[in-house]
Write a protein that binds this DNA or RNA. Structure first.
Lengths: 198, 198
DNA sequence: GGTATTTTGTAGTGATCGATACAGAAAAAA
DNA sequence: TTTTTTCTGTATCGATCACTACAAAATACC
């Protein structure tokens, strides 16, 4: 039996908790209450991990948040699937907005986008700087998708979509239900053809 | 000389600081760093008011924030001036968006809307509930303005404007300059005619 | 002047923050 | 079995949080 990957056991005492399960719970907590709204004591209790084990596994609260963000960004909004090259820009971006609206309102305890909601003002600048790369990556993805067909309109179009996604996320946080949010997403998508026109 | 109002002196030791000036400084601090980002110790130092005087004047940090919000809502975005009855809805709302964009990006240390930015996940729920009345009031004002001419489209139009204002505020927080934000506001306003059409 | 009332500055309160010291327990390696 | 390594739980750390007890100071009223 060949060791595929993580099967080889490390040397010391084995970890007593499931790391992936811990990350999932941590993501739910951060999404529900934000970085500052979740204390290490909260995490320790809800994940069932005592502080020393917590710090051994994640280095710090910021370290855990970084790993949570990484997971979230890879699983939340399937940007690459929606923004398929060759697809009509206006239609694809409208689809993106509507899909985002659905996701943002889907889970009552995790409304909005974890990345977009991690923004100033915050008591701590750690979460904001941790989330920044994902915001710029999302912007770049949208811009490059538009640039393939409308290079001169790529930046303003990406800016507009940034505004709309941020707005949808904020109102999802406010408690809007999926229908209301999706309706607003569709209404806002009507601005897309104009910004994409030469 | 007739006492107009506040001229009649109270009985005890007079207050040693200017209350209005204190509120102005507190507003700047809350706008720059958010409710959770400003501690009572910060306020005490920057306003030059020791904690006992602070609590005698404002009751609590939340009490000060409530008074700051009241001032801000009355002075920030002149909704009533922009949403004049009789004005063309699409044009008035476009004006509102552009004006908001200008204001949100005007002061680098106070980007975005103080009310709208007080919805992002926070350690404390006090600021969010304190700002809620102002958010609903703004929504109602926009809805009623539209209802005067397009009653059936008032709610979805107000929802769309809510999304756009939240989005503009969020991106202003991100550091966008006025030109970029105004351009996005204008682009987003292109969605207004459709949502206002019967 | 004397008294009542309010604000003032000094110096704290207990609670909670993120993060750790320490020693025992559980595994692999020797 | 002994050694080495890593994780475990207990019991904190100093810093900071929002907030106050207390007595002196400063005013208006009598």
């Amino acid at each position: 039996m060949i060791d595929t990957e993580k099967t080889k056991k490390p040397r010391g005492r084995p970890r007593a908790f499931d790391l992936e399960a811990a990350l999932t719970k941590a993501e739910a907590l951060f999404h529900a209450r934000g970085y500052d709204g979740v204390s290490v004591a909260n995490l320790s209790e809800e994940l069932g991990i005592n502080p020393p084990s917590f710090y051994a596994a994640f280095d710090s609260k910021a370290g855990l948040f970084a790993r949570v963000l990484e997971r979230y960004a890879a699983s939340a909004l399937p940007l690459d699937r929606i923004l398929q090259p060759g697809r009509d820009p206006a239609e694809a971006l409208a689809d993106l907005l509507e899909t985002a609206a659905r996701i943002y309102a889907a889970t009552p305890s995790a409304r909005g986008c974890l990345v977009l909601e991690t923004v100033h003002p915050s008591a701590d600048e750690v979460p904001t700087t941790a989330a920044e790369p994902y915001r710029t990556a999302s912007h770049a993805l949208i811009r490059d998708f538009v640039a393939a067909t409308r290079p001169m309109r790529a930046e303003p179009a990406a800016d507009l979509v940034d505004v709309l996604l941020s707005g949808l996320s904020a109102r999802a946080r406010e408690g809007w239900d999926a229908d209301r949010l999706v309706a607003s997403a569709r209404a806002s998508a009507k601005a897309l053809p104009a910004v994409l026109a030469d």
